[in-house]
């Protein structure tokens, strides 16, 4: 049994114009020693999907179906109180742009101890001691626990976000775009920290990004999302060496690198479909170079192929 199993998850946004199927029938799992990368363009539903794991759905969004089994229990059928206890202690999340997710009028130490007091019966002194340890864990001097967020640089705020998320030793960590908007050198330092934490704490991670190189540097398994669905799931190396889905292929080809020969880069024409009235058949068909007649008629199921999962009519 995997640590986390998401089965047929559906999250829709109910707008006046109709239901927007932001996450539509996706399944994936995370094992104890895995780092799963969720990759896709903006609006593909990757953040909505992981929010659902913590049972967050911002109105008008609603989780309309599926199961989220974490340590043999379905999060979607838990009581409010159970979910509250789970957040931060069982599953913790570092939000996108953690730089701005911190409270500007509380010191970072207060923000760390706040989480600890929520979940554990400890004295104030113990909590502060742990807050200092948490900061040291992410490479910030413990003496800076009394500093306010504005006294830190962007990369350091992101580290503080990780310190808060890991304060209660969660059993699963979710990182939403952890390095987006940071400079390359800071980005690399942070990725090193993430890899280091995973090794030291043995922490399974779900990492959301639109950046192929972040996946390449941190993840063991990758799920590629497109328009609310997972179109391919494979281990990181085989996805990179031999992507199966036409979208994954183009995504990899469109990514520039400073290493190796300067190959020809491609861009994918068009834009993802609106999810209010998505097209019949495969959602990627209008942009797909290998589209066939059947792609306009039937939605491709996710099938097993050489140890990976892919949703494309090319593979039957």
């Amino acid at each position: 049994m995997a640590l986390l199993e998401v089965e047929n998850l559906k999250v829709y946004y109910f707008t006046r114009a109709g239901a927007v199927k932001a996450v539509d029938d996706i399944s994936f799992s995370v094992d104890k020693d895995e780092t799963l990368g969720l990759i896709g363009e903006s609006g593909c539903g990757k953040t909505t999907a992981v929010f659902a794991i913590m049972r967050f759905a911002a109105p008008p969004g609603r989780i309309v179906g599926g199961k989220i089994i974490f340590e043999d229990r379905d999060i979607l059928t838990m009581s409010e109180e159970e979910v509250r206890l789970l957040r931060g202690k069982g599953i913790a999340m570092v939000f996108q742009a953690a730089q701005n997710a911190l409270n500007p009028v509380m010191t970072v130490g207060q923000q760390i101890t706040e989480v600890i007091h929520q979940h554990e019966q400890v004295t104030k002194e113990e909590a502060w001691e742990r807050a200092r340890k948490q900061l040291e864990l992410v490479g910030i001097s413990g003496d800076r626990a009394k500093s306010y967020p504005h006294e830190f640089s962007g990369g350091m705020k992101q580290r503080v976000g990780i310190a808060i998320a890991t304060a209660c030793n969660p059993r699963l960590l979710i990182l939403d775009e952890p390095v987006t908007g940071l400079d390359v050198i800071v980005q690399r330092q942070l990725l090193n920290l993430i890899n280091d934490l995973r090794a030291r704490l043995g922490l399974p991670i779900i990492l959301i990004t639109h950046d192929l190189s972040v996946i390449a540097e941190t993840c063991s398994k990758v799920a590629v999302m497109y328009a609310g669905k997972i179109v391919e799931e494979a281990d990181a190396v085989s996805l990179y060496e031999d992507p199966a889905h036409p979208y994954s292929k183009l995504l990899i080809k469109s990514y520039p690198s400073i290493k190796g020969e300067k190959g020809k880069l491609v861009s994918i024409p068009g834009a993802p479909p609106g999810l209010l009235n998505p097209p019949v058949g495969c959602y990627f068909e209008p942009r797909c170079p290998s589209a066939m007649d059947i792609c306009r008629e039937a939605e491709p199921p996710l099938v097993k192929k050489d140890g990976r999962l892919v949703a494309c009519h090319l593979y039957k």
């Binding site: 390359v184 050198i185 980005q187 690399r188 390449a216 540097e217 993840c219 990514y255």
Partner: peptide, 18 residues
Amino acid sequence: ALIAAAPVPDPRVKMEEL
């Protein structure tokens, strides 16, 4: 340093020391 830090979209490439 900038070049060493530049992200490489290939899981087979090991990250260099900065």
